[in-house]
Design a protein around this nucleic acid. Structure first.
Lengths: 186, 186
DNA sequence: CGTCCACAACTAACCGTTGAGTTACTACGA
DNA sequence: TCGTAGTAACTCAACGGTTAGTTGTGGACG
């Protein structure tokens, strides 16, 4: 096995995102992360300090990734939600971590204030995003709508009879999502 | 201390809702629930079996409570979200449990299929709730929008300068919520 | 009407396991 | 041969769950 500290660190981080996404902060197991990363438990402590710090590192990593991968376009919010949805679909662990963040917030956890503040500022500055609604409310709604599919139980996703894992069903939902934001923005 | 098994059971259930709401299934502590309920740990096992069963009992309790407290009105969806929001505001532990459910689903957990299926069916039957959107998507969006405020970090809630705990700010958000659903329904 | 008894509610101390974090050590590579 | 990456074995506290025992209550019976 090659000795590459950067690669090991990256493997640990990737495994941590999956583990925290699957089980949350309290439910995640350091041993499982080590095993999945094919790294030793000890190296996690060497590279990241402790469980909470690892969680924080994973969180900042995904926040960075999402804000570069899915830049906001204040002139086309419907398209923006669509792209967030696509990103979530491709990165299930990321949505789940995002859902966990407000629930299990470590005391010294990462503060995504800046990422949100920038979006709200950009939206406010861009004139009238959604006519008379507050920019911060619009950001909240867009986030919530993009996550709706993932926070719904399977039973609800299947409620209309289609297989919730089929491409058609997902495409329909995506279209509904984009259309909803279009209507919201007037 | 009076010996009243029904009262003790109810105290445990109430404490469990708070504890699970605050920490989730994995993070919740049986000892804390017992202490908060002013009951002995043992009685929890007598009345509910184990931790997961207690979680399930708490979940079915709130599902029941919410579906009776906030009946759906398929003819006035904007009003319906508003009422859900009010309920959530008055019962913070309930929102948090609802947010936790899709993340920490115990293997033998409660299945809220029926509650959702009924809503989707009612909505489908009532003609055109939101013109061309699937009823199940509409239900997802309504749920997500009603929860948006509670899953947003404080920094986002405060992004426009107002105190996020003030009545005015909350009223503005509620109005935005109702208006958004109104637009969604066309 | 008093007294005993059986059962239900309650309690405290304990047990076994799990899991975060550490220690002491080995192997690799420059 | 020195420093860094990696490993296995361990510690210790926390926590879910249990055992064994205590207290209060309500009813049967003399």
């Amino acid at each position: 096995m090659a000795r590459d500290s950067a690669a090991t660190r990256a493997r640990i981080l990737a495994a941590a995102i999956d583990e925290f996404g699957a089980y949350g902060l309290a439910g995640a197991r350091i041993d499982r992360i080590a095993e999945a990363a094919q790294a030793n438990k000890r190296s996690i402590y060497v590279y990241f300090g402790n469980k909470e710090a690892l969680f924080a590192a994973a969180m900042t990593h995904i926040v960075d990734d999402i804000s570069t991968s899915v830049p906001i376009d204040t002139d086309d919010l419907p398209d923006y939600v669509g792209r967030i949805f696509d990103y979530y679909l491709a990165n299930p662990s990321v949505v789940r971590m995002a859902m966990w963040l407000p629930l299990e917030r470590p005391p010294q956890g990462p503060d995504e204030t800046d990422a949100y503040a920038k979006k709200v500022a950009a939206l406010s500055a861009s004139g009238s995003p959604a006519n008379d609604l507050d920019a911060s409310d619009v950001v909240m709604f867009i986030n919530a709508l993009a996550q709706a599919w993932f926070m719904s139980p399977d039973s609800l996703r299947a409620a209309d009879g289609l297989d919730p894992n089929s491409d058609e069903r997902i495409a329909r939902h995506r279209a509904a999502l984009v259309e909803t934001v279009r209507r919201m923005c007037g």
